Simulated scan of single mutants.
Amino acid sequence: MTSSQRPLTRQVQRLYQEHQRWLLSWLRPRVDCRELAADLVQDVFIRVLSAKDAQNQLEAVREPKGYLATIARRLMIDHFRRARLERAWLQALAEQPEAVSISEETRAILLESLCELDAMLAGLGPNVRQAFLLSQLDGMSYKLIAEQLQVSVVTVTRYIAKATQHCVLFSLGAER
């Protein structure tokens, strides 16, 4: 451990000691599972410790409970989004004929890809996301998308351009 990491480690350790029980009791009724709540608490502190410029971020925190609750809320949303996506995927797989079943490894890779796609599209507004999906998945023309979303074709063109740019930037960020 470098000398620059010691103050950060001490800060996070103190934050953990002072707020871990509170955060656990805050999360437990929201997730309705003691083990999941405990996992999320650990993930919160891992997030705090591994954040970019963590030292300065921690020094800027005025309300530690609010800061920790915000991180926990985001992790909880990510967890529930992933669980919902996984359930939908498993249901779709269950509805497939047996001849189309896939290996566990392929299933895990596809599920991970779906989660990454969901995370990437989560950064888009609802109309932009819907226009992009209608175009890319359903193959709809911009005119039909414009009619469905009740916007102009020019707006749909802007939506698709924005979504494409977002996807490119997201993929470039993921490669780092």
Rank of each mutant, 00 (worst) to 15 (best):
E86M: 13
R176I: 10
L121Y: 09
H19S: 03
A88E: 15
I109S: 10
L133I: 12
L75N: 00
L27V: 02
P97C: 13
E147P: 07
I71N: 02
V48I: 10
V156W: 06
L137Y: 12
K65V: 07
L114P: 06
R14E: 12
R30Y: 11
N56D: 15
E175A: 12
A119N: 09
D118M: 10
E18W: 03
R81C: 14
C167P: 00
W26A: 06
D118V: 01
A69P: 04
N127A: 12
S4V: 10
A51S: 15
Q148A: 04
D138W: 01
T157E: 07
Y67C: 08
R81N: 15
M1S: 14
R107K: 11
Q91V: 14
D118A: 10
L49D: 03
R10N: 07
Q150W: 10
P7R: 04
E147K: 07
S3F: 13
I46S: 13
A92P: 08
L49R: 10
D118Y: 03
E116N: 11
T106R: 11
I160D: 04
A51K: 07
W89Y: 15
A163M: 04
Q42W: 00
S25M: 00
V12S: 07
L124Q: 06
A69I: 03
E98Q: 12
A69G: 05
F132V: 01
Q148S: 04
L124E: 00
L124G: 02
I145E: 06
I145V: 01
M76N: 03
I109M: 11
L75D: 06
L58P: 11
E59F: 01
M76T: 11
N127H: 12
E105W: 05
E104R: 08
S101K: 14
L117D: 05
L85F: 06
E147A: 08
A146H: 10
H79S: 07
V156T: 05
F45V: 00
R30N: 03
A60Y: 04
R73K: 14
P7Y: 03
R28L: 05
E105V: 10
Q165P: 02
L134Y: 09
L90I: 05
L117A: 11
F170G: 01
T164H: 01
F132N: 01
S25C: 11
F80I: 05
I109C: 08
L24F: 15
S25W: 04
Q57N: 09
F80R: 13
P64Q: 11
H79A: 07
L90N: 13
S171V: 06
H19A: 02
L111M: 03
Y142C: 12
A146N: 01
E86F: 10
V12D: 00
A122I: 00
R34S: 10
E18C: 02
L90D: 09
L15D: 02
E18Q: 14
R73V: 01
R34F: 10
R176A: 12
A122M: 04
R107I: 02
L149I: 00
C115N: 10
L75Q: 03
Q20R: 05
L90T: 09
W22A: 09
Q148F: 00
Q11L: 15
L124S: 04
V61D: 06
E59T: 13
F45K: 00
L40H: 00
T106W: 03
T164V: 01
R47C: 13
R81E: 13
M76L: 08
R158N: 15
T70H: 13
R10D: 12
Y142P: 00
A92H: 05
L68G: 07
A94N: 12
A83R: 11
V44R: 02
Y16Q: 06
R6E: 13
G139C: 05
